[in-house]
Structure formats: structure tokens, C-alpha cells
């Protein structure tokens, strides 16, 4: 794969196959921590960090250990254990080395274990049979796309707080409808590539 194709892959991972708006992965934290843009940034950065690291690890374990031994069916169990280990490790590492970043990301890290985007990307990397470089580009692209969308969404939600919305549509219902409208906008990117 040459450089141009890698750029196209990254572009399509960020915008066209956006993990949240077209593949519905990671909806719970998307709705949960998007009420303030500050916390959306924290969650977005934590997701970029964890998805990249856990994708590299799960990809390596699958192709270096599980596949040669014929243990492909163990992947769900192995991946989820790796991901929860990575999350725990990242939390301890950041706490020791960068307390300032820990203060910002701290409470979002434990939440990421149940973010289905992390396991989802790990599985997609295997299903699409990416090589190492493609896998890294795709994982970084997907997580940057997630961070971008959750930040944009949170700024819209801050505005919508002040809008006169019928009582029964306040909170999650209107948030879902906004996500739907954003999703329509993102479909437009499909025409570019």
C-alpha cells in the first residue's frame, strides 16, 4: 500500500466510516459524557490513547499467538482481557508520570473498558485482515473521528440546553435526533472519495 492509499484510508476512517455516526460503536459514553465540551475533550483524548494502544496489542497477539496456534475462537475472551489490562495500565502509568493529564482524563479511563468502540475496532482490524501499518493508520483514524464527533456534539448540546424544547424530548431524545442530523451531514463526505 503506497502513501496515497494510506492517506485515503485515514480520511475514510475519520469521516466516511465514522465509528460513532455510521457504525454505532461507543454510543453509551457518547450520550453520557457529551453534556460539557470540557469532558468531551477528555473522553476523546482518552479514547484515542486507549484505542491505538489496545489495537496494536490485540492485533499482535492475534497474528503472533492465536492464529499460529489455531485458537482464533478465543479472540473475544483474550481481547477483552487485554483491553481491560491496557486501561488499568494506562491509568497507573499516567498517574505516575503525568499527574496533570491524569487529572484531566482520570475519571474517563475506567469508563473506556465498556466502550464498545475499543473492542469493535480490535475486531474490525482482524476481520479486514489489515497489515501492521494499515492497522495503526485505521485505529488512529477511527479514534480521531470519534474524538472529533464527540467534541462537535458536545458543543451543540451546550447550545441546545438553552433552547425551548418540549419537556418530554429534553435530554436523551433530542440528543439522539441531533446525532441523526449529524449523521446525515457525515453521509455527505462519502461523495468526496
Amino acid at each position: 500500500m503506497n502513501f496515497g492509499q494510506l492517506v485515503a484510508l485515514a480520511f475514510s476512517a475519520i469521516l466516511i466510516q465514522n465509528v460513532m455516526l455510521t457504525q454505532f460503536l461507543g454510543t453509551c459514553p457518547f450520550l453520557g459524557v457529551s453534556k460539557k465540551s470540557q469532558s468531551a475533550i477528555g473522553m476523546g483524548l482518552a479514547v484515542i490513547f486507549v484505542i491505538t494502544l489496545s489495537s496494536i496489542l490485540t492485533w499482535s497477539v492475534y497474528w503472533l499467538v492465536l492464529d499460529p496456534l489455531g485458537l482464533e475462537y478465543m479472540r473475544t475472551i483474550v481481547f477483552i482481557l487485554i483491553i481491560s489490562g491496557v486501561v488499568q495500565f494506562v491509568e497507573m502509568f499516567i498517574k505516575k508520570t503525568a499527574p496533570a493529564i491524569y487529572k484531566m482524563l482520570g475519571i474517563y479511563l475506567p469508563l473506556i473498558t465498556t466502550n464498545c468502540a475499543v473492542l469493535g475496532v480490535a475486531l474490525i482490524n482482524i476481520n479486514k485482515e489489515f497489515n501492521f501499518i494499515e492497522m495503526v493508520v485505521y485505529s488512529v483514524g477511527i479514534s480521531v473521528g470519534y474524538a472529533l464527533v464527540i467534541y462537535v456534539f458536545s458543543t451543540i448540546r451546550e447550545r441546545i440546553e438553552k433552547a425551548p424544547i418540549p419537556e418530554s424530548f429534553k435530554g436523551t431524545p433530542i440528543a439522539l435526533i441531533i446525532a441523526g442530523l449529524m449523521s446525515i451531514a457525515f453521509i455527505g463526505f462519502a461523495g468526496i472519495l
Binding site: 455510521t22 439522539l176 442530523l181 446525515i184
Partner: peptide
Amino acid sequence: APGAFITLGILL
């Protein structure tokens, strides 16, 4: 995709 969000939002 957009239909999923909008349908669930309106049903809720």
C-alpha cells in the same frame, strides 16, 4: 444510519 438515531429519539 441517521434513521436509527431519529427513530429512537422520537420513540423515546
